[in-house]
């Protein structure tokens, strides 16, 4: 995985640079873990067309993850590569929110996880595009077009499942009940995010949360689904406290590089 292109480093203090490294790594881990989850569907999709749709989205997210890892490696400046960052860190060093590491479950679980993430992802990228970090803005500008399609795709499925048959409705409601608790973490800033918000590098989450709420409410209304209220937000992934699922996922994701260090094919 080697591309050569110019990476623009912002002129900031070493402290902000370290925070930016942590944040970019968080974005990278989030895209990579969700990409891996979706890739688990490959060959198992409910129909050929949706199997391909999930593989496409997985590859979009993997491409986005690579851009972030490359940028993070440059920010760190210690000679680590994108591969080192993706393949040679342990679960507690991963910074993805809990939502994206949740298992695929049935198709409804995958769709609800995807929609909750896509709604956040899309509105975040819209903001990052105009942020002061030119490299992040460039990655966001490329990825936002993909994210716009992802959220259109997953919203369409939430509507079909919610306003579908008795069984599809029961399954999508079960998935919403299981996954809603992980939505709050996406827009709850960590100390790193707060510090970067203070200097303008990370957009304010209150405005994004409002856009997400409107987006979700619109889709759920069309799906004739109720938006859960007052659910406790489960947090921890963004600060390295993960569910048990991440360890198993990384075992599979990192196996080749761990077993055969430096292997290429």
């Amino acid at each position: 995985m080697q591309d050569t292109h110019t990476i623009l480093l912002p002129e900031v203090t070493p402290e902000v640079r370290q925070q930016l490294f942590d944040y970019v790594l968080q974005l990278a881990d989030t895209s990579l873990i969700l990409a891996h989850r979706l890739s688990e569907w490959c060959g198992h999709g409910p129909i050929l067309e949706q199997d391909l749709a999930m593989a496409n989205i997985s590859l979009d997210l993997l491409g986005e993850a690579r851009s972030y890892y490359q940028y993070a490696a440059e920010l760190e400046g210690q000679g680590r590569t994108e591969d080192d960052l993706a393949y040679l860190r342990s679960a507690v060093q991963y910074r993805n929110p809990l939502l994206v590491e949740q298992p695929n479950g049935d198709f409804a679980h995958t769709i609800v996880r995807q929609f909750l993430y896509d709604a956040f992802h899309y509105h975040l990228l819209v903001q990052l595009q105009t942020g002061p970090d030119r490299q992040l803005a460039a990655i966001a500008e490329k990825s936002v077009k993909e994210a716009a399609y992802h959220v259109k795709w997953s919203a369409e499925w939430v509507i079909r499942l919610g306003d579908g048959t008795d069984e599809s409705r029961r399954r999508v409601e079960t998935a919403i009940n299981a996954l809603w608790r992980y939505q709050g973490e996406l827009t709850t800033p960590t100390p790193t995010e707060q510090a970067l918000q203070a200097v303008g590098f990370v957009p304010g989450y209150a405005a994004i949360q409002q856009q997400i709420d409107q987006h979700v409410a619109r889709v759920f209304e069309e799906a004739t689904l109720a938006v859960p209220q007052g659910v406790f937000a489960q947090k921890g992934g963004k600060t390295g406290r993960h569910s048990e699922h991440l360890g198993y996922l990384l075992t599979e994701l990192q196996y080749m590089q761990r077993a055969y260090p430096g292997m290429k094919w």
Binding site: N56, K152, E156
Partner: peptide, 19 residues
């Protein structure tokens, strides 16, 4: 391709035939 309706058919076509 297979799809439940026109909207899904266009999305599926995008995913299957315009990659």
């Amino acid at each position: 391709l297979h799809a439940a309706d026109a909207e899904m058919a266009i999305q599926n076509a995008r995913d299957v035939y315009t990659r």
